[in-house]
Design a protein around this nucleic acid. Structure first.
Length: 279
DNA sequence: GCCCAGGCATTTT
DNA sequence: AAAATGCATGGG
């Protein structure tokens, strides 16, 4: 048991905003599976200190929660107008998380045309069946080797639908060295995105999620159905779109409009839209 | 029954 | 280049 602290850090917003799928808050504590172990966290509302019950070292969680980001500076940079200003003032303290690349890759491939509760259920079922038991109903995320060895018929038993075949193929690409995930850290955003999009089932949106949430590419601007609606509604008349607002152009617009940390802006909008709808 | 969900791939206009 | 459609599954 130890304590974590960082200025501008809100644990609830960070874990509830829909970027990560292996955390739940059944009571006063957040419980999650990270790096093959169960982690329990509780934040003191007054002091902001986070109580940690985990075998993971403090340094790991500080890295995981991106305490190295100067959030005040980042939010100042993306705060371009009254819409973003409102999202920031409501949800300040939401930090992006450094997820594990392999788990993030598979998770966002599963996210295709699924609601967040469905995604969480799918990952949970996949882990329960093909991960390692790490105590009392918790299971680690399956290894690439395990999933690569399956036929997609077996995976379909996990109710993954049309996603099953894609998952097995992706696992085989990773196992075979066709896609070396660690290389994407040093590749620039465009190059990394192109490499991810070679996989069946990874388009612009899924690639952007993986690049933002696992590889820290802040210029990724994932355009899902929520972000698309927000941008159409508030910014659709901008000269940039020249009358036609497509998902691909929305991504380019986000990069242009919010700048090098647009990924953060996207996540604040996404969370606000999910909670409040289009006000 | 309908429509939608952190879409993608393919076909049709 | 934009729009329509099929794809599995679960929830409102």
């Amino acid at each position: 048991m130890y304590e974590l602290f960082c200025e501008d850090f809100n644990l609830d917003y960070t874990l509830d905003c829909g970027q990560v799928f292996r955390w739940d808050k059944p009571g006063d504590w957040w419980v999650g599976v990270v790096k093959g172990s169960v982690v329990r966290l509780q934040q003191d509302k007054v002091t902001g200190k986070v109580l940690v019950d985990s075998s993971l070292p403090k340094e790991f969680l500080e890295h995981y929660f991106r305490f190295d980001d100067d959030l005040d500076d980042i939010l100042r940079r993306v705060n371009r107008d009254v819409f973003m200003d409102e999202a920031i003032s409501k949800y300040r303290g939401l930090r992006l998380i450094r997820q594990d690349p392999w788990e993030c890759l598979i998770s966002y491939m599963l996210a295709t045309a699924w609601s967040i509760p469905n995604i969480k259920r799918g990952i949970s079922l996949l882990s329960a069946r093909y991960g390692k038991k790490i105590g009392d109903g918790y299971y680690s995320f399956p290894e690439p080797e395990t999933l690569a060895g399956l036929c997609d018929g077996e995976l379909r038993d996990c109710k993954l639908g049309f996603r099953s075949g894609r998952i097995v193929k992706a696992a085989r690409h990773v196992m075979g060295g066709n896609l070396v995930l660690d290389e994407l850290f040093s590749a620039d955003y465009r190059e990394a995105r192109q490499r991810l999009m070679f996989l069946e089932g990874i388009g612009e949106k899924v690639a952007d999620c993986i690049l933002l949430f696992a590889f820290g590419k802040m210029e990724a601007f994932p355009v899902d159905t929520h972000v698309e609606k927000v941008v159409r509604y508030y910014y659709g008349s901008h000269e940039f779109f020249n009358g036609s607002v497509t998902k691909s152009k929305i991504g380019d617009w986000g990069r242009m409009y919010f700048g090098e940390y647009c990924g953060y802006a996207q996540q604040y909008f996404f969370y606000q839209k999910r909670l409040e709808g289009l006000v």
